[in-house]
Amino acid sequence: MVKIILRKLAVALALVIGLTTLVFFISRLLPGDPATLFLSPQVPPQVADHLREQFGLSKPMLQQYVSWLNGIVRGELGYSFSLHRDVTSILLETIPYTMLLATCAVFLEFLLAILSVYFLFRRQSVGLDKVFSYCTNADSFSFVHRQTDLLLHLILPVCTIAIPGAAGMSRFLKATVTQISSSEHVLFAQSQGQSVSRVYFCSVLPGAMLPVLTLGGLELGMLLAGALITEQIFSLPGMGRLTVAALFARDYPLLIGCTMTAGIVVILSNMLADILHAVIDPRIRLNAHA
């Protein structure tokens, strides 16, 4: 068990390092540095050089990278030009809103997926199956939702994010439920005369949920991207809106901070989903020991 967790941690660490490297080089290799961005062309070049010196941009690239990484480890993401504050403190203020939104959405997704597949399981008629598959195809209904539901309140952003996600998730869950419902222990439970809901919730679902759990970890990345738009529409003071604001203000440190936080959150949630998977499913533990 410890071994699995350690391995997952190592993978996550490698991914985070890869991510930071990527973000750093994207931000540095692209044209335009702060000195040329903020100084007018009339300013003598010495001033620009001085500014570069101050920002540490005159050092070699590798040294810059190391010091930047050093800052990140200490939680210093730089200074936002547009809000005139520390990026870390801004992010700490806005993340709770987005996290609230995302967590609610994930729960709603699981709930909707489990319930809708339950109704499918109860009544395995072809007609319902058809209707259902049409509904799940409508990933993009959210765009219409985003249009018409503006006037209503906080529950709507969550629904807007969760409904398309739930569609994908229930499609996935449907596949695993179909797979598991033909295995012996389910047949045994059915032959004992247990009620359909008991069979579904006690025998089928525990096994079927495992792969879906991993999907839930991946889903968070989608949710963060969804929040980017949803927060814009519903005017929520979260990270998505901050990112867009940073973008239009050309506030690069803030933008990089947001991108990186989102990436790290996704990596961590994937790792947690994997570990949780290993904790729940004994097969993985046994495989790791073998």
């Binding site: 890869g18 994207i26 931000s27 991207a225 690069y252 990436g263 990596i267």
Partner: peptide, 23 residues
């Protein structure tokens, strides 16, 4: 595949937005 994983771990809309802003 590890390279793919790193790229996939960044929410793609975020990275697209960052690139659009820079370029």
């Amino acid at each position: 595949m590890r390279f793919c994983d790193v790229l996939l771990s960044i929410p793609s809309l975020f990275i697209t937005i960052a690139l659009m802003a820079f370029l």
